[in-house]
Amino acid sequence: MKELPKINQLRNFQAIIRYGSIRTASHALLQTQSAMTRSIQELERILGITLLARGAQGMVLTKMGRIFEPRVNMILNDLERAVDELHQASQLSQGTVVFGCSHLPAFSVISSLINRFQMEHPTASITIVEGQLSELITSLRLG
Rank of each mutant, 00 (worst) to 15 (best):
R54T: 12
M74F: 11
E85R: 08
Q91W: 11
A56Y: 04
R66G: 01
R45G: 03
H87G: 01
G65T: 01
V72Y: 05
M74S: 08
T62R: 05
R54D: 11
S102N: 13
A56P: 11
L76A: 01
G65Q: 00
P70G: 04
L86A: 12
L51T: 01
N77D: 07
I75S: 02
R45Q: 14
A35R: 11
Q94T: 02
M74G: 02
F107I: 15
A89L: 11
L43Q: 06
A89E: 10
M59E: 10
L61H: 01
Q41R: 15
H87L: 14
G95F: 05
A53W: 00
G95C: 06
A56T: 14
G48Y: 10
F107T: 13
I49N: 12
D78F: 05
R81E: 09
I40A: 08
V83A: 03
L76F: 01
A106M: 10
N77R: 08
H87R: 12
Q88R: 09
Q88I: 15
Q94W: 07
L47S: 05
L47D: 03
D84G: 04
Q57A: 13
R81H: 08
S93Q: 05
V83F: 08
R66H: 09
G95P: 10
M64W: 03
E44F: 13
G48K: 08
